[in-house]
Design a protein around this nucleic acid. Structure first.
Lengths: 228, 228
DNA sequence: CTAATAGTGTCTTTCAGACATTATTAT
DNA sequence: ATAATAATGTCTGAAAGACACTATTAG
């Protein structure tokens, strides 16, 4: 299974000889998500490329995985280096999928492991954030990565408390929950139905508090909070 | 917590200097599944290691990913080289999760990308197959990989027609469907309930045919078939 | 008051879970 | 007939979907 083993000899492309390791490079590309409570938008962090290829184009923040480095370390490094987000602002990370098209990077075959990262919006302001529902064209195959992974993120919301709490923060209103759900799934649920769904999320509690009313008037929304 | 699940971000050791690329090796480890229609067992292909480390122990079939090689190619190569299964016997493959514990291989940091592969049982006989419900202790962290991925396989059955058709073959009986579901999820559904679930699987059709009766007598089961 | 926003009650449909009952076969 | 195996009917409860109605705020 590893390089030091002899593979059965036969003319197969991609064959690895013992001692002579020539592997694809591994990059970690991050869907860095930042929930703006004010507008209710889920923002995706993008970075302008300062090198060829795709110089000047937007791209997902990504780094090459270092030897012995863990995926989430690399994701934090990417978010810090490419978006300027301090490491402490990364609330949680997790795997999405791996993209292995050999021609996805013109410099040579590169594996891309896509991770999500949820950020604390108070500590991750910066220049380049795009609403997840209107991401500009990106470099490499990142348009495809975003499209594929957006569906995965939509499935994860409310099912994975670590992701959901990381995205929405320690407390949030029903209105914000509706906005975030719409941003990730493309579909806005009915308030009553989302409320029942949230009642069943482990660790999430409906409080008696109401948030401050909005500028335009209207009943103030309920506050939800994670316990533990 | 499962490695494939979300992780909160904590303290991180180790950094990588840019410009000096020294990446972890990438191995592709395969959960090669073979459904034995006779016994109703889902069998996992394991290979005995012929080199250190873990000499003589069983392990998942795996290979190092070659430069520019696709994950699917590597999975087919692993199954062919380590299990002796001809390439044409691989019906389908897909991603499961990535395991990035740096110490998972004593020879050095190695990323493991776990894939599933479904095999044609008629063309993939061989020496070492273990029921998925009774896998022997494996080398490296493969026990953990199997445990984590078994849950993912259970979720995929009936939801992913490519996986399900690859596992069960072009046609199968209700009894076999019950057995396969029990093997992957650990839970045997009621026949009526599984029948209704299968009625909703796209591309799967309940036929009017009955399979040959079993040796012990009893009503012959219905045959299900994929269309297209 | 009205407009805007949000929460609640409830009906419907879908789906999973759990049987009891009926059907078909070998012996 | 009896045992073995499988299919079917039906009841229950959980969950999603859809909507009408009520509640609370700013102006």
């Amino acid at each position: 299974m590893l390089s030091v083993e002899a593979e059965p000899v036969g003319a197969r492309p991609g064959q690895v000889e013992p001692g002579h390791i020539e592997s694809s490079l591994v990059s970690v590309d991050v869907l860095a998500l930042r929930f703006d409570a004010g507008s209710g938008a889920v923002l995706l962090g993008v970075s302008r490329r300062e090198l060829e290829p795709f110089l000047g184009r937007d791209a997902l923040p990504g780094v090459l995985l270092g030897r012995g480095e863990r995926l989430r370390e690399a994701a934090v490094r990417a978010v810090a280096g490419k978006l300027g987000v301090p490491e402490g602002a990364v609330r949680a990370t997790g795997q999405l999928a791996t993209f292995d098209e050999p021609s996805r990077d013109p410099r040579g075959p590169t594996l891309s492991i896509a991770l999500w990262a949820t950020l604390d919006p108070a500590r991750s302001d910066g220049p380049r954030w795009a609403p997840l529902s209107a991401v500009p064209p990106l470099a490499f195959d990142h348009d495809r990565i975003v499209a594929d992974c957006r569906a995965l993120l939509g499935e994860r919301l409310w099912r994975d408390p670590v992701f959901t709490a990381g995205l929405l923060g320690p407390e949030f209103t029903t209105a914000q929950a509706l906005d975030a759900t719409e941003a990730l799934t493309g579909d806005r649920p009915y308030p009553a139905n989302l409320g029942r769904l949230m009642d069943r999320v482990p660790g999430l509690r409906r409080t008696e508090q109401h948030a401050a009313a909005r500028a335009k008037g209207g009943r103030p929304p309920l506050v939800w909070r994670w316990e533990g």
